[in-house]
């Protein structure tokens, strides 16, 4: 378990991270979310001991002793690779630094899996952005770390490779690894994470189990689809806080009962379907941020 207790970091007068608390359970995937510039990378660098927090502490398994480097895998936001050496040498060097025994077979197997088997001797600079990201990911997990910290791992990957990455993260989770990853792409997090923390302007907006947050923080809405498309603009919708999207109208339940809404609409039109709409994580985030600002 990793406990982050009240960490803060200020650069000159800019507060990058303010009093951040997070609890990361072992064997789970923890999503760290926020818009660009929210403070995710600073927080991750503090977690990685690359920068020292001005205040607060980070505890691994209850102690302030950091696990050895070969227990942690880290993928920085931007490509952290030597450009002028080969793919194989890059991986060998980092494997050597992390004391991986006999790494060559492992390197070749991972490169094969990521469809880079033929690029063993290519210089890193010769690889595409996506392939460099894959190489960097291999470098992060090659030494079989217990903790895997990924800063924007999906950036630069095409949909096929995004799927592959998700598959591997699932496998790693099954193997009991603790995975922390940051992203500003909420849909990725929603599909993958067990727990999340939402951060904005360096401050924690909310944190906890994804399922619970989705249920408790999401705005409850009804998705209403009329039989006649012309009823989508019916004036009866103006009685509610509603939004029209793709042949349906989404009505916020807040302050009304579901039955009342349906009864009101039935008086004015024929309804094809009415269902409870699941809020997306992005909607929850926007709702919470707007709530905290007001």
């Amino acid at each position: 378990m990793i406990e982050i207790k009240g960490i803060s970091k200020t650069y000159d007068s800019i507060v990058a991270v303010a009093n951040l608390d997070m609890m990361i359970q072992p064997g789970r995937i923890y999503g760290f979310l926020g818009p660009n510039g929210a403070g995710k990378t600073t927080a991750i660098r503090m977690l990685m001991n690359i920068i020292i927090p001005d205040e607060g502490s980070i505890l691994f398994e209850g102690g302030d002793q950091r696990p050895p480097a070969n227990k942690i895998g880290y993928l920085p936001e931007e490509r952290g690779l030597y450009q002028k050496i080969s793919v194989f040498e890059t991986l060998q060097y980092f494997a050597h630094l992390r004391s991986v025994p006999h790494p060559n077979d492992k390197i070749k197997a991972y490169l094969q899996r990521f469809d880079l088997g033929t690029r063993l001797q290519s210089k890193v600079s010769e690889l595409s952005k996506g392939n460099q990201q894959k190489l960097q990911f291999i470098n992060t997990i090659l030494h079989d770390p217990q903790y895997i910290v990924l800063d924007e791992p999906f950036s630069g990957l095409d949909p096929v490779n995004q799927l592959l990455l998700k598959e591997i993260l699932e496998e790693l989770k099954q193997a009991g690894k603790t995975i922390i990853f940051s992203s500003h792409q909420m849909d990725q997090v929603e599909k993958l994470c067990d727990d999340v923390a939402l951060i904005n302007h360096g401050q924690l907006v909310t944190a906890g189990e994804l399922k619970t947050i989705m249920q408790s923080e999401g705005v409850q809405r009804l998705q209403v689809t009329p039989v006649n498309a012309k009823d989508l603009t019916h004036q009866c919708f103006s009685a509610f806080n509603s939004e029209r999207t793709n042949g349906s109208v989404f009505i916020e339940i807040d302050g009304h009962s579901k039955q009342d809404i349906i009864a009101t609409l039935n008086k004015s039109m024929d309804l094809k379907s009415v269902k409870l709409a699941e809020p997306s994580l992005e909607e929850i985030f926007i709702h919470l941020v707007q709530g905290s600002q007001s």
């Binding site: 990685m48 001991n49 480097a69 942690i72 880290y74 920085p76 952290g80 690779l81 030597y82 470098n139």
Partner: peptide, 16 residues
């Protein structure tokens, strides 16, 4: 400068 500009420095500093 190379490690700084290519951000390799971050990977290295997470290791050593």
């Amino acid at each position: 400068l190379e490690e700084r500009s290519s951000r390799v420095i971050e990977v290295l500093l997470s290791t050593v």
